[in-house]
Nucleic acid binder design. Sequence first.
DNA 1: TATGAATGAGCGTTCATTCAT
DNA 2: CATGAATGAACGCTCATTCAT
Lengths: 224, 224, 224, 224
Amino acid sequence: MSRSADPLAKSTLLRAAEAVFADKGLEGAKVEEITQRAGVSKGAFYLHFASKEEAFRHVLDAFFARCSALITPPNAFDDLPTDPEELIAFALEHDVSTFEFLWQNRAMLRIIDGCQGTHRYLLDAFLDSTQNNALDWLKWLQDAGLCRRDVDLSIASALLCGGYRALTMRMLAQDKRPPLRAWLADAQQVFLGGLATERLREAFEAARRPRARRAANDMQKVDR
Amino acid sequence: MSRSADPLAKSTLLRAAEAVFADKGLEGAKVEEITQRAGVSKGAFYLHFASKEEAFRHVLDAFFARCSALITPPNAFDDLPTDPEELIAFALEHDVSTFEFLWQNRAMLRIIDGCQGTHRYLLDAFLDSTQNNALDWLKWLQDAGLCRRDVDLSIASALLCGGYRALTMRMLAQDKRPPLRAWLADAQQVFLGGLATERLREAFEAARRPRARRAANDMQKVDR
Amino acid sequence: MSRSADPLAKSTLLRAAEAVFADKGLEGAKVEEITQRAGVSKGAFYLHFASKEEAFRHVLDAFFARCSALITPPNAFDDLPTDPEELIAFALEHDVSTFEFLWQNRAMLRIIDGCQGTHRYLLDAFLDSTQNNALDWLKWLQDAGLCRRDVDLSIASALLCGGYRALTMRMLAQDKRPPLRAWLADAQQVFLGGLATERLREAFEAARRPRARRAANDMQKVDR
Amino acid sequence: MSRSADPLAKSTLLRAAEAVFADKGLEGAKVEEITQRAGVSKGAFYLHFASKEEAFRHVLDAFFARCSALITPPNAFDDLPTDPEELIAFALEHDVSTFEFLWQNRAMLRIIDGCQGTHRYLLDAFLDSTQNNALDWLKWLQDAGLCRRDVDLSIASALLCGGYRALTMRMLAQDKRPPLRAWLADAQQVFLGGLATERLREAFEAARRPRARRAANDMQKVDR
DNA sequence: TATGAATGAGCGTTCATTCAT
DNA sequence: CATGAATGAACGCTCATTCAT
């Protein structure tokens, strides 16, 4: 029998690759550094991957596959609470478990955040699907009479995803796991109830009417 | 004062470098392409910059310097409207001119967005100062009684900046200038008034009380 | 002004390449050896050639271009002697000058002889055109009543070219220029007059008749 | 006697090696392809050969050993026909069986033809012995009064071998076995009786006398 | 000062060879 | 003996940097 294949070799390499890609990016990562970190020879790398690029794709694909499980449109649930209060709690739990997953995979997030060029489309596609999912939810909420009808939902979904992405980045900057539930509860509050006090909100509503007209113009003429 | 035969050479090079870095990133950009685009020799490049990296830093530094002018804390204004309605209009105008600037400099934004590794800290630092500025404003609004007191402002400022960043990225994806004023008015609405209808908001406020306690615990014990 | 381009660099490299390709072949030749022999850096090689292959093609193409001038069909001459004796002398002079050229370029011949794989077709194409040219001459001689009509000219031209090629290889094995005129005069004798004495020739002619039938069969049935 | 689990392994490997070397040459052949084709492991290869080079030498040596049986000097026959006509027929049969062998081993011939560098000497040595054998035969024919005495036999033997080699190459270019007997009969005719008609031959003989003197000079002074 | 030819360290990839099983 | 995973030297090519002019 041959020297039995180290069954850990590939995953050791993938872990090493993940780490090096994370702090150097695709170009900056050197195959030799990956193999040294994995404790194998340079040749061993090519036993498992056809090229550095392929290893990179492997790392990304595997992660995005796991990520896409996070995206669940409203019609994928058959047990969605009808009571608003329960719905809110349900959403918070969902957010918490999502962020828990992201925290566990923070190394990958760093890679993806730093990934540019050819592979950037993978992140962009994911962010897009994230945003479309947010849009689906907002529409569903509108239909359920739970979301205002006077906002542009595509802008709103961009803000929503951007906000949560910022929260994710904030999380990445931490050494130890932050209080995710508290963060996410606050986020819920901001997006559901807004930041303004009653007084500001009234002023805003007052101001909106004339501005709404201007904004409507804007779409046709493109301001400035 | 050194008499340079071509005193414009350096800025020509910087402009060319900006363009190439934007297309290709730091690694992908070749010195030769930069110098060809600038119409000078390769040697000339090294008359002005010690290395490709230095040129890159120059490009980024110059841009971030211009960007930091966008960051104005509330106490930098002595003519801030006291009337809430006017304040809102004032903020919108400020946002529009900021985004106008970003649109004009979209090439740079693409560089920065794709920039990773050693130089990423420049973007991160800028985003941080952005977020701190947002925090200052939120505090100022709280003091003025215009912002709710029951939200964690550091989370709120992260969401705010994340949302506006998402809007920026959305803008970068467009071929022609989008209706910025309309976008920003919508953003104002979401952040000031939230997305929930009255019915959902009430459910939310009801649900908050018990959860608020849990969240408070969370900060000490770190949930899970 | 820049460091002026060494105008000899390319030809120095080509000469070095020619030499290395000659004793190692395309695969066996290492770019580094070529550049060392040329006394330049490895990078300089790529200033002049896009790849090792391209340099190889350059070397071969240049030579085959010069070689194709050696191939002259009978109708390319307007001053061909009609007197057989003069024609023979004319042909010998032509052969001598051809072999003189080949001797001068013996290094190239060694490359070409050792060249295999993708580029072999260049040699094969040249040998083919050589053989077709020989065929044209034999036909022309037949029309002039100077060549026997009872031989298969395509076989004869193969033997002719093969014989002269063997002479060429023999020449390549020599350290100093061999007596080419004597060699070629002998070759003329062999191909024109044959090797047999009168006695053998008669036996041969006698033997040919029955065998000729057999050979004719052979073409249909394919012997054995 | 070592009990090999697979005593055929070595010859299986040699056959596989022969095939791969024929397709790809020494450099182009990969050990892995050879072992895959032989259906054994890469390690097994090194159980039988010290290196790829050695396997190559083995393949060549084995073939040249079989080839050398083709080279039979006149004094190796004790039953050589004394009648010229029979001798000619005998020689033709010998040629046919030789070419039959070469046709059967055309794969090997392709290897050898494409072989260059270090191993080329094996082919060259074989061609040399071929030529020496031809020389022996020509001398024997001269002694028997069957070959002209006024040609340089070393040149003649080179032409003879070159001609037959060209015929061999022509055969290699065919998909199916060509009519070898007819080809070889033609070759016999060309080398024994020459190509010239009586008229040209007479002119040639006339022209030879003065030139013969020149050629004799040539050997001493080296023309030009 | 400005040029661009020249340099050479460095990297991705290949593959003959080794060796633990 | 046999296996094939593991090794690492070697090579083609790139490109940031230098320097003779």
